[in-house]
Structure formats: C-alpha cells, structure tokens
C-alpha cells in the first residue's frame, strides 16, 4: 500500500512499489485520461507532471512518485477553468483520434511553463510525443496560440 497525491488529492493504492505509475493511475486511482501506448517511454501518451516536470509515467515506478505532486490531464483545469493549452487545442481543433493528446497536452503545458514564448525550435525539441494521425501542424499552431494567451 502506497500513497499517491494525484491532482491535489491523496489516494491510498494497493500496488507493488515497482508497478509503473501509469498503471497505478489508470487502474488503482481510476483516472483513464493518461494513456498506455508503448510501455517503454517512447511514445509519450502516458505523460504526466511530477512536481511540474513532464514524466513518461509508464517508465516510472509508482513508489518513486510517493510524496510528490502528480498532475494528470484531468487535473489541468483549475477552479473550473480549462487550461489555456486545452482552450487552444479546442480552438485549433487539434485532435484526430485523440488517443495521444493527453500526453501531447501535458508536454505542451510543461514547455510553456519553461518557455512562455517558445520558438519553433523550442517546440521541436520539447514535443517528442508520437501522433500516428499526424496532428503536429495543429499542435504547433495551438502552442503558439496558447503562448499569446
């Protein structure tokens, strides 16, 4: 039994310490917005924030996240207001199938925290998630737009 603080709320979860954080979030905490894509930190569909930093949760043991602030896609909105990145995503109609987009949005939020006015090169360097539908053109435009908000 370990304690995880997800989106500001404590959860006691019955997992082995080496359970990937991704599966603890999905199956034990019950938040399914964070997706499984590869299990080896390649695709980024499972990206969450640990103390504000983007982390591929499929490759992090749940026990490593104990005592830290875990934020998932479900926790981005604050005080009933969607995050400016989520708004930009809707404005630009970014998602196609949408399966990678939770991770994509979490990566974009981190980028903007780090670099509020990112260049195209900054976006290229930070956004390493895979999208098989190929939404990158809209992702780039939405990030630039969110940077202006």
């Amino acid at each position: 039994m370990i304690e995880l603080k997800v989106n500001g709320k404590m959860h006691r979860v019955d997992v082995e310490p080496d359970t990937p954080l991704l599966w603890a979030i999905r199956e034990n905490v019950g938040l399914t917005g964070t997706k499984y894509g590869c299990g080896i930190a390649q695709c980024g569909a499972c990206t969450v924030h640990i103390n504000g930093e983007p982390v591929r949760s499929c490759a992090m043991q749940a026990s490593e996240a104990v005592g830290k602030e875990i934020t998932t896609i479900e926790g981005l909105a604050a005080n009933g207001m969607v995050h400016k990145v989520q708004k930009a995503w809707v404005d630009h109609d970014v998602p196609q199938c949408g399966y990678c987009q939770s991770g994509m949005i979490m990566a974009a939020v981190s980028l903007l925290k780090e670099k509020p006015k990112p260049t195209d090169a900054d976006i290229d360097a930070a956004m390493t998630n895979i999208c098989r539908c190929g939404t990158f053109q809209q992702v780039r435009a939405a990030i630039h737009d969110a940077a202006k908000a």
């Binding site: 938040l31 399914t32 917005g33 964070t34 998932t72 896609i73 479900e74 981005l76 909105a77 969607v82 989520q86 995503w89 809707v90 109609d93 970014v94 998602p95 949408g98 987009q101 939770s102 949005i105």
Partner: peptide, 13 residues
C-alpha cells in the same frame, strides 16, 4: 469544428 474535440482534450473521452 469537430463534434468530439473537448473530451479529447480533458481526458474524458
């Protein structure tokens, strides 16, 4: 605009 976008940006889809 697509009809299925919002849920694909907040984890609810």
């Amino acid at each position: 605009k697509r009809l299925d976008t919002v849920e694909k940006t907040n984890g609810k889809m």
